[in-house]
């Protein structure tokens, strides 16, 4: 479904990705693990069109999107929930969700999708008229994910959805992601919290210095001594 083939990305002379390659198959939850600065966020930014790779190729569902713009990429059903949630703080919860449906031409369809999100996340329905910035961190993360769902993703990319959240809330967010995946949406999940990510992932990659150094089923990664040592804080 998504194929990243040897992409290079640099920011003003500093190269962040060196021939990064990975694939996400239909229906998979793929976890991208690695330390800060390893290149996980850069990978997502390249896929969603925020930065343009200097080399390599990105193919989504048979479309070459290496040089496509973010609106084109969202239009194909590839939606990115950015690091730090980035919800629109003075827009209401409802308006934030409506922004997710920006490219959906039919207002009735947007309403149906927003209703589906409210069904999935009743807390958001209670707070629909509240400004997004007044929500708690966990609710903001739910809103960011809900907003992306309204865009109708077939592949959802999430960047550090557990960041700054209490353990119980992390569990709730991971359950939500698993639920979205069961609904038929593939997921590419960037996480520092490797333990939580590997619980819901089917497969995982370990990223170091701008490329993938390890690719294995999630269960294997969770038992791999190198991974345990580096990312799961030893056991």
């Amino acid at each position: 479904m998504l194929e990243i083939d040897g992409i290079d990305v640099s920011y003003g002379g500093v190269q962040a990705l060196h021939g990064m390659s990975l694939t996400v198959a239909d229906g998979e939850v793929v976890a991208l693990l690695g330390n800060n600065g390893a290149g996980k966020t850069s990978t997502l930014s390249a896929v969603s069109g925020l930065v343009r790779p200097a080399g390599g190729r990105i193919v989504f569902d048979g479309h070459d999107i290496t040089r496509a713009s973010p609106p084109e990429i969202v239009g194909l059903g590839l939606v990115h929930v950015p690091e730090g949630r980035r919800i629109f703080s003075t827009l209401t919860v409802q308006e934030n969700l409506q922004m997710g449906g920006y490219l959906v031409r039919d207002p009735a369809e947007t309403r149906r999708r927003i209703d589906r999100v409210y069904g999935l996340l009743p807390r958001l329905r209670e707070r629909r008229e509240q400004q997004g910035g007044t929500l708690s961190g966990g609710e903001q993360q739910m809103l960011a994910i809900g907003r992306a769902i309204v865009a109708g993703p077939r592949l959802l990319m999430l960047d550090e959805p557990s960041m700054g959240l209490a353990p119980l809330v992390v569990t709730a967010v991971m359950e939500l992601i698993a639920e979205i995946n069961e609904g038929g949406t593939s997921v590419l999940l960037v996480e520092q919290n490797a333990k939580a990510a590997l619980k819901i992932a089917t497969r995982g990659y370990v990223v170091e210095n701008g490329r993938c150094v390890l690719d294995a089923p999630a269960a294997e990664l969770a038992d791999d001594s190198r991974v345990v040592e580096a990312y799961l804080g030893g056991v």
Binding site: S48, L50, P70, V74, P82, L91, Y102
Partner: peptide, 23 residues
């Protein structure tokens, strides 16, 4: 309107607005 909402969204966070498909 949809475009008005997009204007307010861009004012708050242009990157997030692009990720929602706003030109």
């Amino acid at each position: 309107s949809r475009q008005g909402r997009a204007m307010r969204a861009i004012a708050l966070d242009p990157v997030a607005a692009r990720l929602m498909g706003v030109d």
